[in-house]
Design a protein around this nucleic acid. Sequence first.
DNA 1: TTGTAAGCGTTATCAA
DNA 2: TTGATAACGCTTACAA
Lengths: 339, 339
Amino acid sequence: MATLKDIAIEAGVSIMTVSNVINGKHSKVSDQTITSIQELVKKYNYVPNLSARSLSKKSSKLIAIFINSYEAKQNLFKDPYISELFGELESLIRQSGYYAIIRSVETVENVSTILHNWNVDGAIFISQQPKEAMNEILEHSKCPIVFIDSYNNDNPKAIMVGVNDYKGGYIATKYLISNGHRKIAFAGCYSETNEIVSQRYQGYRKALEESNIPYVEENLINTFTRYEDGINIGRDMANHNYDVSAVFAAADLLALGIIEGARINGCVVPNDLSVIGFDNLDLCSLVTPKLTTVSQDVKKKAESAVNLLLDAINQVDIPSQNITLDVQLEVRQTVQKKV
Amino acid sequence: MATLKDIAIEAGVSIMTVSNVINGKHSKVSDQTITSIQELVKKYNYVPNLSARSLSKKSSKLIAIFINSYEAKQNLFKDPYISELFGELESLIRQSGYYAIIRSVETVENVSTILHNWNVDGAIFISQQPKEAMNEILEHSKCPIVFIDSYNNDNPKAIMVGVNDYKGGYIATKYLISNGHRKIAFAGCYSETNEIVSQRYQGYRKALEESNIPYVEENLINTFTRYEDGINIGRDMANHNYDVSAVFAAADLLALGIIEGARINGCVVPNDLSVIGFDNLDLCSLVTPKLTTVSQDVKKKAESAVNLLLDAINQVDIPSQNITLDVQLEVRQTVQKKV
DNA sequence: TTGTAAGCGTTATCAA
DNA sequence: TTGATAACGCTTACAA
């Protein structure tokens, strides 16, 4: 591998002159030497050693993408929402001239180690982090970090990108109610620490309340959000283990599973059961019946995350640290008027 | 950030002593100093600067994962097979003490630049590469590279991991024939350069030939392999644009799309049409009817790739450079005896 | 058991 | 416009 030194020697100039040409500081070099050096660069296929550059500049052009190691003991990349988001992020990072290092993490220590190991310029978390973890991570790091889909109002260092989960839960439930449903289940991975789902759930509760529909505890179905989990719930619905005419599922995959599980057991959506999902995966408009769902714009989410991060890296003044993207209802075919 | 120097000063020893402790070369340091240094390491949360280490060791502990930028103008991570494979690879790389850098690439030059920029120890391609691209990449790189799902018999430097695509096409078609089908379509992204699909196709042809079934050119359906592409094909099948009673689709997603497209248009699988897919995604056994498919073991594929790569990095003698994993037929519910 | 010196490839700083 | 020098944080090789 050719180095600056090699080229400098062959060109009969100093290393710094070559370095300046490489870095486009043309004001500091004569046109003559520029062209002669550029030829040599081409001839030897010179590419800068980024470890060396990183060492000397104290900035690596690396962005770390972190993801939780497992959920339900499963490769998280099997989740189509996560994969799509990841693909968009990678693409944007590359187009911005950065390099993406991907890392699944189990503990908080893992994170700061990586951050310092590689002198990364910034980081993005693509799966939700509990508030305590966020605070600990932020405390130990000096580079900006964007958290996607996390909630934390207390820490000013936290840069967050998310969607209006509360509104999502609200409009979905409202829509079911406006279609005459009053017995509505909420299905999702509900827990104190899962703010996303809590928010969607709060929106659901609010909509019920506004219509004076009494809340029924049994209608909160706490579950993982994989397709197979939905299958089980759909089966239970078909078997009338729940007294509901509609379900709001906090993830499309879960909703699709519910529909399938119900169908297998003789309960047809939307005739016998109305279902709304969340995410608006491509799949929603391809299956039958097409899934009515709360849509979020994954591309925009990725863009917002990368833009915020780059602004923070470049110390651009950011109007607001956080971005909450809007959601909207995609009305399709899985909700029917209750007669 | 604490450095070796900081710790050395505080401990009143030389940098090298600290370095030796960090690297576990305990034979070279007295027990006393070891413990005192280890305390300081903990106190200052010392983590080694891997850029510096990489620079001086000429090895980075980085493994690059490459993927083609786009297919059908689409984020490739939307493909569940790719995502799952990627997730497994990331996990294995991490567990092996390496760091994964992910990069989508458009041109061959991109690749060698990254390889040299970061001094990566090895690389893995997770989407199929044409032979010429492989050769060019290998020529310009000195680190070992594993190609998943690529075909190249000519280049001894190429390390390849794949599945027996030919056999997959063969057993799928054979199974359809044994169920009385004689008019069988092949659907896939067929082209001269797409060896995977060509192999599956050759297997299909071979099976037809063995049963003296004349080959019908119209039954080769050349298509992208997304769900939505399948929808269109299924519709055409329902409308009898093809004179077939069965389809072998070169990807599960495509097969599922075909089934759905057919169903929407009044053609029920397996009663009116038999379908076999390829990959054995989790989804196959969750949908109705459950998809009969040629299964490949994605986890094993990822393991094979990482193991071969690590062996090559560590110069372990490898019995064979290449691994071809077996495939088998998963008989489920989408093939019916033709009456 | 401990330490010294040189070098990895680059950039920043300052001098010529 | 060009170059010399030091520095980034670490490891290798060798000396004490």
